[in-house]
Design a protein around this nucleic acid. Structure first.
Lengths: 141, 141
DNA sequence: CTTATTGCAAACGGTTTGCAGCATT
DNA sequence: AATGCTGCAAACCGTTTGCAATAAG
């Protein structure tokens, strides 16, 4: 967490309370929150924070690769603080998102695309969207 | 293309000119157009068409699985008429999208996830987002 | 003839922006 | 002390909606 301060400093960014709390919320969040959700959380401890600050902060983090931004099917942005390679699990309606880490899979994909190039493109990154239905009972909305 | 009329009929949907043209634009489009782009194309031949009709039409198609909807990193929706299993190639800025068909890959992923279940979830679909830089010279924006 | 669909204009909702005051370096 | 960041309110822009007129079955 103090890593963040260092990273911010190393990039000439100021370590404001707002930024620290936004980052903390992302770290402690199991699901990937929307900007609004981050706002609600940060507001609890910093009632005067504004939504635009949340957006600005998140965007700054994304630009500096401290945070990932993901879009669900409804086009609303969600953010997560883990930049290590991992994939995302979506519910069928695109609502819930969880992280999915899988080194074996990473290796598999890496092998595959090392052999099989895609003509005219250089692959930078591969992201999986794993669309799932949860097995627990769920109200048939 | 007349397949569309049949499909619409079989679902009790009316085959309006607007729908036919929207579908045609999607079929003939190499990149996946946004609603706005579809609108511009359809307008050329049907000047009185409205943007909301384009949206309604696209949404109807998506609901009936005639068309896929994809979000790029900026959250703007793009549509494509190919519903067979395939993945998507994104440029690094999330702008350009191309289709990527690969049966071998599908098989590979299928095998992998048949063995390795994800606890608590039932996998419905897997989508790859392949982030690429094009190899052609490109203005360093 | 019935009902779904269109086109319009207005509303919506997530996100961005301009700017004065303030906090961090 | 200098600059970058915040918070506010207003703008933005992609998308949705209500509804009267129209076209498809």
């Amino acid at each position: 967490m103090n890593k963040l301060k260092e990273k911010l400093a190393s990039k000439g960014l100021k370590a404001t309370v707002q930024r620290l709390y936004v980052y903390e919320v992302l770290l402690n969040s199991r699901q990937h929150p929307t900007a609004e959700e981050v706002y609600r959380e940060v507001s609890r401890v910093l009632p005067s924070v504004s939504l635009s600050t949340i957006y600005n902060t998140l965007e700054t983090f994304v630009e500096h690769k401290l945070v990932n931004k993901v879009h669900n099917d409804s086009g609303i942005a969600r953010y997560d603080a883990f930049v290590e390679t991992h994939h995302h699990i979506y519910s069928e309606n695109g609502e819930v998102i969880a992280d999915y880490y899988d080194e074996k899979l990473a290796e598999l994909l890496n092998d595959y695309f090392t052999k099989k190039k895609i003509k005219g493109y250089e692959i930078k990154e591969i992201r999986l969207q794993i669309i799932c239905s949860t097995k627990e009972k769920e109200s048939k909305k």
